[in-house]
Write a protein that binds this DNA or RNA. Structure first.
Length: 515
RNA sequence: GGCCCCGUCGUCUAGCGGUUAGGACACGGCCCUUUCAAGGCCGCGGCACGGGUUCGAUUCCCGUCGGGGUCACCA
């Protein structure tokens, strides 16, 4: 049995798209599940200046998610190089072979001449088929065309009868008429190569057994199979994944349509949440990477990579009718192409956040601290003299911290006690307006001052006794107390807050109100 | 427009001829409650439509409609 080898082949675009993540993940899972190899190849046939710079975020993103590769950039491998830009000699050899075998030809048509033929076909409502009028069958032809000042591209001499049936692992049998296919260009006038040619040459060289890729490549498959067969290569298995769609739509998710997605309430909320964290740690939110379509976004804001993996695995794949929580190991064990859905699946920010919360909740206290510390440091509020409260703060916050960056919402716990900022509305409602608030706070402060045991339970008892004695309701004082201590009307449990801050700091904060 | 793919609650999905069509997220309500979350309970909500095939169709076939992908000297 042929060994399982899959590949993910990003172009050096400078970012890792969420749809790309899903494709990479499925390829990776399939390889790992079957004890095969996962290969990373860089599709940089249209040479750019800074390929290294443009692939860095992609490699980083994959690693962050826990997706590693057995062969590819950085790690090398027996089939190196893994950059298409460094493999032109192989492509040239393949083109020459195709030419030699008569499955490709030199074409001297100008772009406008091809376009004219195409327009005519459209006007006559028939499928466009190139006349091959400028096809050079002999060197003499070529010379003649050249003497007319024409340039030459290499085209595939595609079949014009019969049909092709692809047995796709996800879609089943898909039939194409050869007659509807074009004589696609495989080598440009400047000698550079087109992706499809490079793609099949590399897949053959790397011995890729399963081509698992997004659905948009399904209609490219006939021309690739034509080349594969013409060159006598082994045909890989194909599995065309549905693409990841926009929130609330079936259109392919795209990095460029951020403005459109922002009109989606849930998506906008996700971006806002991310921005509020980014601003606290001085991350630029206007650049391309700060976009939930790009994986960088999640790392910057403090999402857990395992939550992203868990969620994205479930966009277009399911194990059964109930299991939803998966760790990477579970996915490797359970993943199967049989479970892949056919229809496009929308990206749902709310569901992602639900997974994020679940995964964060399973973390130990130490792990949570480890995730949160870098954010506190980035916000320059850590370490400071109050550092020792971090553990108890995180514990008390519970699932109020869903992504690591959420810790910054509790920055006030580390603030200098007389520098806590008050929410104006809350201050007016809970402290200025109620006629007795300041008076009650002063009285309660005296009790706190005398209190020896400053733990949440003792404090609660203290409060209960206080309200009983005063014949007031706890509501009459506790909201004022919260605003006085934290500046806000919402927050952790009141007594936990007091305990975490400690007696000295609580009294100091209260002094600002009472004196 | 040609070719190809897809179509189960708002969203992600289970289902692979006989189910009260199941779960999750979201949403609504109630409970709990010092706020906000969380949690518990309950609820809302779906097989696109029309023909077949069959004793019986969400499931198989055809058509319609709808959505999407692709038609580059991009990948």
């Amino acid at each position: 049995m042929k060994s399982i080898r899959t590949r993910f082949a990003p172009s050096p675009t400078g970012y890792l798209h969420i749809g790309g993540v899903r494709t990479a993940l499925f390829c990776w899972l399939f390889a790992r599940k079957h004890g095969g190899q996962f290969i990373l190849r860089i599709d940089d046939t249209d040479q750019q200046r800074n390929v290294q710079e443009a692939i860095a975020p992609i490699l980083h993103g994959l690693r962050w998610l826990g997706i590693d590769w057995d062969e590819g950039p950085d790690v090398g491998g027996v089939h190196a190089p893994y950059y298409q830009s460094q493999r032109f000699d192989k492509y040239q050899a393949a083109v020459d072979e195709l030419l030699r075998r008569g499955f490709a030809y030199r074409d001297f048509a100008r772009a406008d001449e091809i376009q004219a033929e195409r327009d005519t076909a459209i006007n006559e409502k028939r499928t466009f088929t190139y006349s091959r009028r400028w096809m050079a069958e002999t060197d003499a032809d070529a010379k003649r065309f050249e003497s007319e000042g024409r340039q030459c591209v290499i085209r595939l001499k595609m079949p014009r009868t019969g049909e092709l049936v692809i047995d796709d692992l996800i879609r089943g049998k898909v039939t194409f008429d050869w007659a509807a296919e074009q004589d696609h260009i495989i080598q440009r006038a400047d000698g550079s190569f087109i992706y499809h040619l490079a793609n099949i040459v590399d897949d053959e060289d790397y011995k890729i057994s399963h081509v698992i890729r997004a659905e948009e490549h399904l209609s490219n498959t006939p021309r690739q199979i034509f080349m594969i067969q013409s060159l006598g290569y082994d045909l890989p298995e194909y599995a065309h994944l549905p693409f990841v769609a926009e929130p609330g739509s079936k259109t392919k998710l795209s990095k460029r349509k951020l403005d459109k997605y922002l009109k989606n309430k849930d998506f906008a909320k996700m971006v806002e949440h991310g921005k509020s964290i980014a601003q606290k740690i001085g991350i630029e939110t206007t650049d391309d990477g700060f976009n939930p379509v790009i994986i960088e976004f999640y790392e910057k804001v403090g999402y857990l990579p395992e939550a992203i993996v868990n969620y994205i695995a479930l966009v277009g794949w399911a194990l059964d009718d109930k299991t939803e929580f998966f760790l990477m190991q579970d996915l490797i064990e359970k993943f199967s192409l049989d479970g892949v859905t056919k229809g496009a699946a929308s990206f749902d920010p709310q569901k992602l956040m639900a997974f994020e919360e679940k995964h964060f909740l399973t973390k130990t206290a130490e792990e949570k601290i480890k995730y949160c510390v870098p954010f506190l440091e980035a916000a320059k509020i850590f370490p400071n003299e109050n550092s020792e409260i971090l553990g108890s703060l995180i514990e008390a916050a519970g699932d109020r911290i869903k992504v690591a960056g959420d810790i910054l919402g509790f920055a006030d716990f580390f603030a200098t006690d007389n520098a806590v900022e008050f929410d104006e509305v809350a201050y007016k409602k809970r402290i200025t307006d109620p006629k007795d608030a300041v008076n009650l706070l002063s009285q309660f402060r005296e009790l706190l001052d005398k209190e020896e045991k400053f733990d949440r339970h003792s404090l609660e008892t203290l409060m209960q006794n206080f309200v009983n004695e005063k014949s007031i309701k706890i509501n009459d004082i506790i909201h004022a107390l919260r605003v006085a201590i934290t500046g806000k009307s919402i927050g952790l449990g009141m007594f936990e807050t007091l305990e975490i801050l400690g007696k000295k700091r609580v009294l100091q904060r209260l002094t600002r109100i009472c004196d």
